[in-house]
């Protein structure tokens, strides 16, 4: 597995804490479970997919919007790098 760009991690954390959790002070770590923990609820999954596509040009299909595809900031960052 390649190390993903730290800048992507930072942008993802910023987006998730601010826009999804609505709590910029939330201590989100790169390996915190997002989907399987319910931190990112099902209503926000589409938002995450739309944002990732707008920001990085990477399309996440609805069938991939689950914790098997990505469940952490680190995994989502790798997904983005691999599909760029």
């Amino acid at each position: 597995m390649t190390m993903s760009d730290p800048a992507i991690h930072t942008r993802l954390r910023e987006y998730l804490t601010k826009e999804v959790l609505h709590d910029p002070s939330y201590p989100l770590k790169d390996d915190d479970a997002l989907i399987s923990s319910g931190l990112v609820d099902s209503f926000s999954l589409v938002d995450v997919a739309l944002w990732v596509e707008d920001q990085f040009g990477v399309h996440i299909d609805n069938s991939e919007l689950n914790s098997d595809t990505f469940d952490t900031v680190a995994e989502l960052a790798s997904y983005i790098e691999q599909h760029k």
Binding site: L21, H22, D23, S25, Y26, P27, S37, G38, L39, D41
Partner: peptide, 23 residues
């Protein structure tokens, strides 16, 4: 306080149908 907030979010997400938006 930040840690308490994070734990409140976690416990409510895991224990109910909703996420809590404002704490």
């Amino acid at each position: 306080q930040t840690a308490v907030r994070a734990e409140l979010r976690r416990v409510i997400s895991n224990g109910s149908d909703v996420t809590v938006r404002h704490i």
